[in-house]
Each structure stands twice: as C-alpha cells, then as structure tokens.
Design a protein around this nucleic acid. Structure first.
Lengths: 245, 245
DNA sequence: AAGTGGTCTAGACCACGTT
DNA sequence: ACGTGGTCTAGACCACTTG
C-alpha cells in the first residue's frame, strides 16, 4: 500500500514559526522574557530537544538571546534585521526586502577564452574557458546591483541558454552545472566606480559601492562559480549579526 | 567533601577540536569524505547527539558540508576562511589575523553633551550624554582601522578611566557598563574618506573604505553602545560564509 | 535495498544566576 | 536553595541518496 507523507516540515521548524509569531504578537515574551524551556515543552506538547532546536534557530537569527542560568530574552533589534549578508538567496529578493521593485535592465552572456586570475581563484587550469554572465538589476527603475558571474565551461553539464537563465545563481547551478551550490564564501570590499560604470549605474560623484567577491562551492566542497557583485549600498543595506559566545 | 570540576569544556567541543585537527592533518577525510556519524560515535566513544553537535559547529564555520542521504564532505575553501565579519572579537586579533603587527597610534576620550542621531539609534532620550572613544589602530605601523565607540553615560556603572580602557569593546562593556554585550548588529557600508581623514590615515587618492555601523546589545536585548568603524579593506579583508539550506 | 544524515523522545545530571 | 539553560545518553523511526 502506498504511504503518504503528511508532514514534510520538521516539528522544530513548526515550533520555531509558531514561537516567532507569538513573539511578534507579544503573546509570548511580552515583558521581553520567554517562559522556561520546560514550560514551552508543555505549551507546545513536544520534547525539550525539539524546543531547544527551535530556540537555537531563533537565536542564530538574532531574535532571542539565551544565557546559561538565566531566562531567555527577546532581542528587539534582531526582530527587525533584514538583508543579512550571510543569508541572501537572490537579487530580486534582496531588492524587494530593501523596499524597492526589482527588475533587470541589462543581461549579457560573454565567452571568456581564458582568465588566469579567475582560474586561479577556482583552482582550475590557466587555459580554462569561462562564460561571463553580466546583469544589471534595478530597484524602482534605478540601477542598484551589477553582477558578473563567471562560470567555467568544464562545470557545465549542458550549454547555457540565454533565454532560460534563472535570476538566482543557486538555481542556475541547479539547472546547468555539475553540482548544486552548497556554500558560498564572500569577500567584502569597498570600491569606487570607474567613469564608465558611473554612467551606466547613474552614480553620484564620489559615490562608493560595496563589492562582493564570491566563490560558490558545490556539495563535494569543490569550487564551482565565481561572482563579482557591485552593490549601491546607499540603497541596499547589508547586515551581519554577531553573537558573543 | 569538596567536588572538583575536572572537565570544564563540553565534550562536543573537545570532539569538534579533535575532528578539526584530524581533518587538517588528513587523518580523517583524506579523500574529502568523513566517516558516517555512526562510525564517528565508535571512534570517539560518544553518543550520536554529541557527534552531531560537533559536526554542527564545523558546518557553521564552513569547514564541512552535510547533506541528507549522503556522506559529509570537507570543504577545502572553508578551512582557510579568516576574519569572518560575524565573528571578530577585537581589533588586535583582526589585524593579527590579516598578517600584521597591531598597535594603537591614537586614543581619545571625548564628552558628547548630546547627539540626537545616536540617541535615536540606541532608543534613548534626545538629550542623553555620551562618551566617544576614538582610536586609531595600526598594522605594521600603518593606519588600518579608525574606531569610534559611543557609550551612553546612563549605561555606565562607573566613570571611564582613560588609562584602563581595554582594547576590545566586549571587555569594555564587561568592566564599565550596566550589562555585557550579547549580540551586535552591523550595517556594512562603503565610504570614501574626507580630505582630513585621508591625511590621518595616509590613504591613497580615491582609496575607499569599509564602514561598519554597529549596535551592541546587552543580555536583556537592550541597546548599549554604538560603534562607527572605518576599515581599510585594502589591508583587512572581511569574509562572510553563506550556507544554502 | 542499504546506508546515510534528519528528527524526535524520555530521562538524567551538571553549571550557572538569581533570590 | 532553587530554577534555568547546557550537556549527554540510548534508542527509535523517517527521508534522502546512492549503488
């Protein structure tokens, strides 16, 4: 007899979501303090390990702060954090979360016969061939992100189809690459645009930008794709949450 | 009879450290794949939950990548990541990790009668009084970080003693504030120095900098201190690790 | 089909803060 | 002294990937 999966989302995530909602509406933690883990076990009817997984998730997001012998507290600041640099999934989502309507102004696919620097970053042969996918993203019609993705030809399982390139690099890898992206390491830099770029992005004089140099790794830990992303940080504000342990 | 605490570090952290060392020396995972959790349980003589905690820690650091039905793999890129923006503890450590000898060139403690903007960021009254601690840090004798910490007088439990100000903002709060710092939320911006600043920091023309605007929160989730940090990203390279879930 | 990691439970003891 | 979160175990079942 065929079996049906009724509940695909794990219990602890369900609890996390309920808890977050309860915190937002101040049903729980209205005085900034959460009930003890034992109490929450009873309230949600789950084991302590499950409650702790849910709390763990919320703590990682900066929503709550735990402390050994004391009660767990709500972090009002953490509730409002958006656009965490260690979490963003795609450019559209990013632009949307910063309160603007996303669109693409320009999209270009360029063949790069060889690039020793990028090959070196990805640990490939010097004469490796790349595709460069360059895209200009707008927020409310104004240029906000210029992204260049460098995809080694050797990591492709089929030819890139210009019309069918997903917005997100994760989905691009899912569709076209030898492996999906499991992890990205980003170097965060600042930069000032060249005159050419200034015109293209409609920048003010002396307007600086963030430059994210990202190496995307596959499920086996191997480098897959290199991205070079220019962001107008006047409009897109990146955040990071740092916990003290 | 008096009891003695022999083992203050948790078992799972001991296991994490041993595992990391074994990965580094390629005793374990020489082919990029870790033994199964069951195997590791036997090898280390601990329960699966403990092994999983250790693996969890390594995954958060970007050292390994787990995947549901498959074996856990080593991420070579993650092994080398330093200066994670969501982890740094103090400026000296930061400068050291980037390969330079840290020192302080300038240190100043300024009384700020009121600052509506900063008061607003910290959710305080507009007429709140602050201390501004400004410090210029050098790496190998060259200016690399200019940090301004804004400490509200109302959050102090005793007067700041100029001579006894620790290098790290965490320790400063431990010593002088109503609460220790539990969490920091950083906004990551880029900026270009004013002419004045350029001279002070010996910057090249058109050299841009990273600007970190940090709000430090106490154990009860309340805003404590605001920091404004300028970093020469030509010298200090910040990183972020992003996992796909 | 077999092996792997993901989730969940129940119960125990410990270390830390607060009162 | 008490209540809280931190750690740890043993065992069970499920969901996913791989051969």
């Amino acid at each position: 007899m065929k079996k049906y999966s009724v509940n695909t989302t794990p219990l602890y995530l369900t609890v996390r979501n309920l808890l977050l909602e309860a915190i937002r509406t101040e049903e729980i933690g209205d005085d900034g303090r959460l009930p003890s883990e034992g109490m929450l076990c009873k309230q949600f009817g789950v084991s302590r390990a499950t409650i702790r997984s849910a709390l763990q998730a919320l703590e990682n997001e900066g929503v709550i702060t735990k402390r050994h012998g004391s009660t767990t507290v709500v972090n009002t600041g953490g509730l409002q954090v958006k656009m965490r640099i260690d979490e963003f999934k795609g450019f559209f989502q990013l632009i949307q979360e910063s309160g603007h309507r996303p669109s693409i102004a320009h999209k270009e696919l360029i063949r790069i016969p060889h690039s020793p620097q990028i090959a070196n970053l990805l640990g490939l042969e010097k004469d490796e061939e790349f595709y460069q996918l360059e895209r200009l993203f707008l927020g409310d019609g104004k240029p906000v992100i210029l992204a260049s993705e460098f995809i080694p030809k050797s990591k492709l399982i089929k030819e890139l189809t210009f019309e069918e390139i997903p917005e997100s690099i994760f989905e691009l890898a899912d569709l076209y690459c030898t492996n999906t992206i499991a992890q990205t390491i980003t170097e965060i830099r600042s930069t000032i645009a060249t005159r050419d770029l200034k015109e293209r992005m409609g920048l003010a004089n002396n307007e600086t930008m963030l430059k994210l140099e990202e190496i995307h790794y596959g499920r086996q830990g191997e480098p897959l794709i290199f991205s070079d992303i220019l962001v107008r940080d006047k409009i897109i504000h990146f955040h990071a949450v740092r916990k003290r342990y």
